[in-house]
Nucleic acid binder design. Sequence first.
DNA 1: TCATTAACCGTCG
DNA 2: CGACGGTTAATGA
Length: 267
Amino acid sequence: MSRASGSFIEPSAQAQDRTVAALQRFPLVAGLTREEIAEIAAQCSLHRIPAHKRVFEEGERSKGLWVITAGRVRLHHLMADGRQHVVGFRAPTAALDLSSALDGRPYTATATTMDDAELVLVPRGLLQELGKLYPVTVRNAIDLLCLEVRQRDITTAIAALKDARGRIGCALLQLARQFGRKQGGVLRIDYRLTRQDIADRSGVTVETAIRVMSDMQQRGVLRTESQVIEILEMEHVRDSASCEDCQFECSVFAPLLAEPPCEAEAI
DNA sequence: TCATTAACCGTCG
DNA sequence: CGACGGTTAATGA
């Protein structure tokens, strides 16, 4: 897994269009006009990074904000024993490490592409300027950070839940909330995940992830088709995750659509 | 490369 | 002791 050399994409009309299109769907600049976004895009750079390469590494100084325009990225910690602790999975129009980009401190995790990917880099200077120019982006940043904090809380809770079943169940619920699409009677996690991915997310070995998930499949709780997981019996997953003890609304029961913004009235 | 199974083994309640 | 989960190895797709 080598380093992501600067596969910088030369500025062009198409590159510019893709950048604008991606930024328009990025919540940080929600509320800005197309012209304003285009102006921002003109100061960003577009990068193409092959599958299984690092976008950045934990501890590196943040150069700016990475926004995914294509492909998928996993955020994770590299552990001494070679295992990986996945902090989260990201899909297009999501940012990679907003907090590092905002405060300019080192990245809190390593980002690795899962597919050939394309990302926009919003330079840090520009990011700071945005806050002054467009106050709404500050509000948006707070909302996005709220979400990240919640995610982090969930991660902590997963680690605290005692057994492997609970951690895997909780990871599945979280993924279902993030990528789940109701389809017929089942909830499909629209994100290809290997058993290793699930294991790394849950803090167990692949074999354990397989052990637990095979069991779930045999009981008709889950189904997997070419690395796409479908949850058939949400109740059972919730039970295995012992959600009663968990204060998070991994409310996969509530209609999940888009992530509801953090509705803080005033801070 | 990924998924699966099984035997084995140490830890812990 | 027995459940749990990591380790190792083997196998198939």
